[in-house]
């Protein structure tokens, strides 16, 4: 009897092995994929990620489940994903702040370069240098001249650890302008403070309607490329300052995902992100579609992480 049982056991385990091998060799993905959104449900990052996931599902042949992990300005979600199994079943739709701003400023518990492999960049709202409609400054140079010659100008940002703050701190250091940072809770609070004349400048995204309506003036954009809605407004670099705050919204997987699986994800999500349906949703959300391959995203992160790290060191001194 024991012999018989053990023979069955052998047979059974052999069968299991065959089965597991067949699972191993079968096409990826074979089960639902989790896409972590580092912000709360209902924000623009969340809504656009949900749309992208919905469009990628038929291409991947598996459901893409959205998991919201808000908190810490996106840092908590990045830390969780950096420790997830690198099997291609966990992705994150991350933004600039947790990928190269927060890690440059403090210990976040992950390394954005070593712990992640970028798959695809699909959006990234332009951040503008905005002033009130009745502001005496009509160009970035006028503003900087004023701030150099005694006026102390205040600028509002979306939060203490925002990249916009770092870009402007750097600008102040390079030009000797007196610029005082005032962080708000989110970009809408910063915009409201500028509209209510509580600050002189706001560094925020989603300014198009307010600028077109004549309520705010756009002096420059912080990105490395001009905003296609306002092609005449210069970037900081075009204005002669070697500073940029590129805005990214990118899909990343934990480091160690096999090249084939990363490629499967990349092609599916690239197709979803370039579909007219996705473009329509993003237009409604007032968000751009900006496609960049993973290696270029990594280069952007690497470059800015180093620059911000250096800046953070000088800030401490």
């Amino acid at each position: 009897m024991p012999a018989l049982r053990s023979r069955w056991l052998y047979l059974f385990s052999a069968l299991l092995m065959v089965l597991s091998f067949s699972v191993w060799s079968s096409d990826y993905p074979t089960r639902p994929i989790t896409l972590v959104v580092p912000y709360g449900a209902g924000g623009t990052t969340d809504i656009s990620a949900r749309q992208l996931a919905r469009l990628a599902e038929p291409l991947l042949g598996q459901p893409v489940v959205i998991e919201n992990r808000p908190g810490g300005g996106g840092v908590n979600a990045m830390r969780t994903v950096s420790r997830a199994a690198p099997d291609g079943y966990t992705l994150i739709a991350t933004t600039s702040s947790p990928s190269f701003v927060a890690p440059a400023l403090r210990d976040t518990g992950y390394d954005p370069i070593r712990d992640f492999t970028p798959i695809l960049n699909y959006s990234g709202p332009w951040h503008g240098v905005l002033v009130g409609a009745d502001s005496p400054y009509h160009s970035l140079e006028e503003l900087l001249d004023a701030a150099r010659s005694g006026s102390r100008l205040t600028y509002a940002t979306a939060g203490a650890l925002s990249g916009a703050r770092l870009a402007f701190t750097q600008l102040g250091r390079q030009t000797g302008a007196k610029l005082q940072h005032v962080p708000f809770d989110g970009a809408s609070g910063a915009t409201a403070a500028l509209l209510g004349h509580h600050v002189d400048i706001a560094l925020v995204p989603a300014y198009r309607d307010l600028v077109n309506n004549g309520q705010l003036g756009l002096l420059a954009v912080l990105d490395d490329q001009p905003d296609p809605d306002f092609p005449r407004v210069p970037t900081l670099e075009q204005s002669g300052h070697d500073i940029q705050f590129p805005s990214i919204v990118a899909l990343m997987v934990p480091h160690g995902v096999s090249a084939e699986r990363a490629e499967t994800l990349r092609s599916a999500f690239r197709e979803a992100a370039s579909s007219p349906e996705f473009a329509a949703v993003m237009k409604k959300l007032n968000q751009p579609v900006r496609l960049l391959p993973g290696d270029e995203v990594e280069a952007v992160i690497r470059k800015n992480l180093a620059a911000y790290h250096q800046l953070a060191e000088t800030l401490k001194r």
Binding site: G40, A41, G42, G43, T44, D46, I47, S188, G189, T191, A192, L195, D209, L210, N213, Q215, V281, K284, L285, N286
Partner: peptide
């Protein structure tokens, strides 16, 4: 009227308005 949400719930509703093409704001 300003497109500025006061709390988490209205921020989510703001997103829903935008998706329906009713962009909150002065217009």
């Amino acid at each position: 009227s300003l497109g500025i949400p006061g709390d988490a719930v209205t921020a989510v509703i703001l997103g829903a308005f935008m998706l329906q093409g009713l962009t909150p704001g002065p217009f």
